[in-house]
Amino acid sequence: MTTPASAPTRRPRHPARGGNGALAAFTVPSLVWYLLFMMGPLVAMFVIATLNWGSIAAHPKFAGLANFAKLLADERIGTALINTGIHLFATLPFQVLGAFMIGYFLAQRPPGHRIFRVVLFIPALISTAQLGTMFSVVLGPDGLVNGLLNLVGLGDHMRAWLADTHTALLCVILVSIWNGMGFNAVLFSARLASIDQSIYEAAELDGASHWRRLWFVAFPISLDFVSVMTMLQFLWSLFGSAALILILTEGGPGQATSTLSWLVYRFAFGVNGSPLIGYSQAIGILLFLLGVVGLVIIRRFIKQRY
């Protein structure tokens, strides 16, 4: 934590603007506070990952890289890696490309677009706790989905969607898409609305259909924004799935919906087992590295071409 302390001392080196020292006094409290709460825990994570530490009450012992060695041999990690990959690759195309298409549609301001916008915006107001609670009954044995199946005479296909190994992960994916795609679409449409309309008009004169205008005009122009959205969505899906999974399935049945993000939580708090804080943070570091690698890949592949 040397960064916040060294920032103010360096400031007065610009004597030309006498006020800089005073300005620093305005900024430093916020900066220190932010670094303390955001960078501090991040650094601590790397330390904790080297400890042999069970529950919070237990005494931690230094364990070197033992947690990481264990991680490589643990087949639960392999399963979680696969689940995390499936979750990411199934949701990202909808959250980004699907949302972009809807955003383009909204940006054309067709009749009724205002109503669509309001509806698509609604999930942004719903919290993870509400989302999880709501869908645990929608998908539950006596819930909406089964009620509908029963109503139309497909009662044979009823099942406990979240408790079934074959459907649980699919449910988590669908709930993620349900929740994320609409708001992303509104964001894309806000972005597309700021594009100079004459570009579209030129394309229209050339006889380009909406489909072509969408992919060959609007998309390339917005590539930078698409890239940023992909990165944020990627990080959010990679790290953020734990809260939803905690409410919906607790990683189960078995390991069916266990993602890496969920494992960090599971081992930290000992859900269905005893807590292993050090190990949980080692998984956290694996998650962190995956995040960095993912960002670099996205940045490299989705790039403005002109």
């Binding site: 960064t3 610009h14 603007r17 900066l31 501090g40 994570m45 809260a243």
Partner: peptide, 27 residues
């Protein structure tokens, strides 16, 4: 703020967007 430090501080804040909140839960 003028000069480099203002820019650096702004970058430090921007870095915050890339740190997912969940990562730091246990610490």
């Amino acid at each position: 703020a003028r000069g480099r430090i203002g820019g650096i501080v702004e970058k430090v804040y921007a870095l915050g967007f890339l740190i997912p909140g969940f990562a730091a839960l246990v610490p």
